[in-house]
Design a protein around this nucleic acid. Sequence first.
DNA 1: GCCGTTTTCGGCCCGACTGTTTTCAGTCG
Length: 586
Amino acid sequence: MPDGLPSNGRIAAAFDLLGDLLELEGAVRHRVLAYRRGAARVRAAGESVARMALEGRATSLPDIGPTLQAKVVELAETGTMAALDKARARVPEGLVAVARLEGIGPKRAMALHTHLGVRGTADLRAAVDTGRLADVPGMGRRTAEALAAQLAGLGPDGVSADQRVSLGVALPLAESLVRDLREEPGVLRAEVAGSLRRGRETVHDVDVVVAAEDPAAVFAALERSLLVERVLSGGEARRAVMTHRGVRVEVAVAPPARFGNLLQHATGSAAHNVRLREMAVRRGWSVSEHGITREDGALDVHADEDGVYAALGLRTPPPELREDRGELAQAAGDVPWPDLLRVEDLRGEVHVHTTWSDGTASVARMAEAAAARGYAYLGIADHSQNLAMAGGLSADRVRRQWEEIEAVNAAMEGRIRVLRCTEMDILADGRLDWDDDLLAGFDVVTASLHSALGRPGPEVTARLLEAVASPHVDIIGHPTGRMLERRGHAAVDIARVAEAAAATGTLLEINSQPRRLDLDSDMARIALEAGACLVVSSDAHNPDALELVRFGVIVARRAGARAADVANTGPWEALVCPGAPRRAAP
DNA sequence: GCCGTTTTCGGCCCGACTGTTTTCAGTCG
C-alpha cells in the first residue's frame, strides 16, 4: 500500500464520527445506521479501502454505496471530508462523549446543549455541580445523581476508561455462575450468551440465559450467589447484577419452550440480529426473543437455536461468526460453515517458558503437564539474551538447556517429544538476538518484539518484515505486542506482514495469554485472507497455564480459522518455516 | 445512505426497562 493514503481505521473513525454527529442532529435513523455499517465494513476490510475507492472498487463492499465511496475518495485526495467538517461546525464534537454516558443518548445530549449550552463533559460537570440540570425537561433528581457519579469517575480529559474486561477473566466467571444456576431446581438449561459466547476478546458485561418456568426463583438464586455483590436493575424477565470482580452480569429467563429464541436473541450481535430481522420482515414475519410471528399472526417458538434459524430457512451460524459480516447470506446458501478450530485439534505447542528464564516450572514438569494434555510435542521457548529482565539465556546457557532437554526426552520414553525452541527478541534496530550458527541448532524459532513498541508504524513493520525474511525464523510471536488494559497494538501494518509471511511460509502466532490475545481476531482474519497460516500458543509460564490455549482457540475461531489454518494441529515438523507459501490466499 | 425472490423508490428490528411522566419518550441491548 502506498504511503499517505488514509488507513482503514482512519476512514472508519471518520464515518463513525459523522454518524454520531448526524444522530445528535436528529437525522433519519437509517442514514446514521448506514454510516455505522459503512464504518464497520471498512474497519474489517483486508485491503486498503482508500485504494479501492480511488479505483472505483469500494462499492463492491457491502454497505458501501456511491456516497460513501465518494467520501473516501475525498478523504484520500484532500485529507478532509467536507460533510464531516460541516457537521462539526453545526454540532460540538464534545457532545458525542456526553451522549455515550449511561442513561444519556443523542436526544438528551442535544437537550443539554440547547438548554444549558453544554458542549462537552466538562460543561456537563459544571451544570451538575451547580444544580442547573433541573432546568432541562425530563431530567430529574435520579438522572442528576447518576450523572454526578459517572462524571466523578471520569478523568480530567472527561474520557472514561472503557470498562471492558478480558475474555480470560469474564469467561471463567460466567461459567462458574452458569454452573451454580444449573444446580438450581427448576432450571432446565443455563448458557453463556452475548459477546462472550461470540468470543469477543474483551466484553463490557456478561450475558447469561436460563430456561425455567419461574424467573423469580432463578433471580433469587442469582442474588444468593457468592459471586454477586449487588443488584443493579431488573424487571419480570431479566436481572442485572454487579459481581465482586466488578463485572456486570445480566441474566434473562424464558420458559423452556422458547429458550432457543431467547438464546438466539441474547447472543446477537446487535448487527446480526438487525440483519436477521430485516430478512424476516421481507417475508412479512417478525423476529424477537419471544418467537417468530408469521404473517397470519401465529407465534412460532423453539426450544433450541437450530429451530429458530431453520424456521427462517437458515443454517445456524457458529456464534463466533455472528457479526454481520456476510454470515447470514452464507446461512441461506449451501456453502458449509468452516470447520472451526477446536482445542482438541491441537497436537502440541512450541511457546512455553521454564525456570531457565521467567517460567516457574522445570522443563520436566512442563513436559509432564503437556503429555497429560495429550500433546505429541512441547517446544521449550525461553527468552533470549537481550531480555535480561526476564532472565534471557546466554548462548552458553542455551546449549546447556539443550542437554537438559535431551535428558528429559530420554526420561519421557517417547510419551512426548520435547523440542529445542526459543522466543528470540527482535532487537530495536531490527537485528535478531541470536546469530545464524546458534539459530541453526533450534528445532523451531519464534521471534518476538519486546522493546521499542512505540516506534512509528513503518519502523515497527520493517522490523517484523526483516524477521519474516530470515530463513531461521519460523514464527512471529505476539505480533503487535499489545497488552489489554495497558497498551494498544504497536502500529504494525498487519496486512503487509501477513502478505510477507504468506510468501515465506512464516507462521503468525495467536498468543493465548488473556492480557495479550495477540493477534486479535480481526488481524488473524486479515492474516488468513492474505494466505498466511497461524499457530496458537499458550505462552505458559507454569503447567496450569497450558489451559490458556482455550482463549487463543476462541480468537482463532472468530477469525474463521480451521484446523488446517493452524500449524500446531499437525506434527511439529509442520511448524518449520518452508521458505515458500503453505497455501494460497482464499 | 443502502438496497432489491415485493421494490431503481420506499422501505429499512424489536422489546424491556427507567425515570419522569400522568400516558410515554428515551435509552439500552
